[in-house]
């Protein structure tokens, strides 16, 4: 039975929509980004969003996460409006997203305080989460006393502490050096494999987008449509060998073709 459950978890046969976007409209001034945009993000899967500059990759997750208002259309997460759903959001700029007046541990705990979780339970949940991450960070430090990678790790933990239904990540590793980026990708994949929570990653790095994802949402230039939405069937856990796996290289090549076709359209 247990093995069957694992097998089912590993290979979802049918995608069940978790996030549904219908008829989305959004303009900034006279620039129309979305004009009747539809997409489904399947439950328990990792979706990367990739596309040309200015196509509204980050805007899309900001709209879904409720950070900016929509001009029109409907966005639902598990059938509910976003304000009724626990979500996690990891910002690109960790320096400006963490609270510098709180120690790392208090930053991580803060969403639980907002949710009025009692102190004892907050401590227990933070301890449990920290144990899941295989890193040695002194969480008594303030964010500005930590390296960039450590700060972003704290940001991710802060997003995960509420056990969100969906985790949104907006180019989370783009400000980190290469070594740290590789390490963080592993950490994130590890969390995904353990929790199987729905994750949505905006990336400006095609290889990263494909490497991390179950599905890659390739966007066109604005007004934005879906250029392609391919499955990435490479087995998990993925590792450096995945990068030379023929399935992987073929799909990355395909995504690059789609991307270049979209870029040339302008």
């Amino acid at each position: 039975m247990a093995r069957l459950a694992v097998a089912l978890k590993e290979v979802p046969v049918v995608d069940v929509p978790h996030v549904t976007v219908r008829g989305l409209r959004k303009s900034f001034g006279s620039v129309t980004i979305y004009d009747g945009f539809n997409v489904d993000i399947p439950r328990g899967r990792f979706v990367s969003i990739f596309g040309p500059n200015g196509c509204g990759k980050s805007t899309l997750i900001n709209l879904i996460a409720g950070l900016i208002p929509v001009d029109g259309g409907e966005i639902r997460i598990g059938g509910k409006p976003v304000r009724d759903v626990r979500i996690g959001y990891v910002f690109q700029n960790y320096r400006e997203a963490l609270f510098p007046w709180l120690r790392a541990i208090d930053n991580i705990e803060y969403p639980l305080r907002v949710a009025k979780v009692p102190k004892a339970e907050r401590d227990a949940r933070v301890a449990r989460l920290v144990a899941k991450f295989d890193v040695k960070i002194d969480l008594k430090r303030y964010p500005y006393e930590m390296s960039g990678g450590q700060q972003q790790l704290v940001s991710i933990m802060r997003a995960l502490i509420v056990e969100p239904e969906v985790l949104f990540l907006d180019e989370p590793f783009s400000a980190l050096d290469y070594e740290m980026t590789l390490f963080m990708r592993d950490q994130l994949q590890h969390i995904f494999n353990e929790t199987r929570m729905t994750m949505v990653l905006v990336s400006h790095d095609l290889e990263e987008a494909v490497y991390m994802a179950d599905k890659v949402l390739l966007l066109s230039r604005a007004p934005t449509t879906i250029a392609d939405y391919p499955e990435i069937p490479c087995p998990r856990p993925r590792n450096p060998e995945t990068l030379v796996d023929p399935v992987f290289t073929q799909l990355r090549g395909h995504c690059l073709d789609v991307f270049q076709r979209e870029v040339r359209k302008s």
């Binding site: 950070l67 626990r86 963490l98 609270f99 803060y110 509420v162």
Partner: peptide, 18 residues
């Protein structure tokens, strides 16, 4: 005030007063 910090609090569901 850094907009990201306000958004970070907002996305956690913090009230306007908080």
């Amino acid at each position: 005030a850094r907009k990201n910090r306000l958004l970070a609090a907002k996305v956690m569901g913090a009230s306007r007063a908080r």
